[in-house]
Write a protein that binds this DNA or RNA. Structure first.
Lengths: 128, 128
DNA sequence: ATTGACTTTTACGTAAACGTAAATTAAAAT
DNA sequence: ATTTTAATTTACGTTTACGTAAAAGTCAAT
């Protein structure tokens, strides 16, 4: 397994190194360190970073994303733990589903507005 | 046509009056005023507010939302104007479509993780 | 070995999106 | 008529999510 440096990840995702370090400050990502203290990121870290950025695009706060990440990465062995995790996951899934429906409605509206504008343009072109 | 007061809208959408005034500061909404200076909101204003809040849930900035609102509300008569508006609208529509696809992928992933957890729970219950 | 690119921590700065408080005025209720 | 409730403006405060700069150490290349 090989590693990424912080600037490599930064370039890949077109974000700053400061941003990546900030996510670490907030406990969202935990790279290992070399003897000298340099951060090294695994593929898994990279995947987590990708998740964070996607969450951000949907308007989730880092805090919310943090919670969602812990879904993946905690080893939840106990039965109670599992049940709690599932309940939380179902809740989040519901939220995501609602957002999708909401977005699709927005899309519809935008499409109908666009159709209206296109029609207006047609009429203008016709009367030329 | 009847009007809403600011606190009525605030209650309906579960936001603060400060928030609504802030949107006005930013030019997103423009209620009329009584003689004494009290804000009065029409149904249309209410619809705009709803739009703002929906935009926010998708992670759009107030600035972006501002631009999108002007799509609805400007009377764009000229041909050039219409073409620009349509182009902008198509762009935004594309963004929304991408977000939907992105969200659906997230949903899939969450579902498969949940399925995994449920399976684990089953095994635990079975071995009881 | 030295230059240059990269990394680290520390720490102050900032824009967006409000919160909150104060002082004042107006509307609604008793 | 007078409380109570709601509204206004002004203005400073706060949180989130980073930006930016400084000082110092490290890695890669010539």
């Amino acid at each position: 397994m090989n590693y990424y440096t912080i600037s490599q990840l930064a370039e890949q995702f077109d974000i700053s190194t400061r941003t990546i370090r900030y996510y670490e400050e907030r406990g969202l990502i935990s790279p290992i360190r070399t003897e000298s203290g340099q951060r090294l990121y695994t593929k898994k870290d990279r995947a987590v970073l990708k998740l964070i950025l996607r969450g951000k695009r949907f308007g989730f706060s880092l805090e919310e994303i943090h919670e969602m990440i812990s879904l993946f990465d905690n080893d939840r062995t106990g039965r109670k733990q599992l049940e709690k995790t599932i309940a939380y996951g179902e809740q989040k899934l519901k939220e995501v589903t609602e957002r999708i429906e909401d977005l699709m409605q927005l899309k519809q509206e935008m499409e109908s507005i666009l159709a209206d504008f296109r029609e207006r343009l047609q009429k203008l072109e016709g009367s030329e």
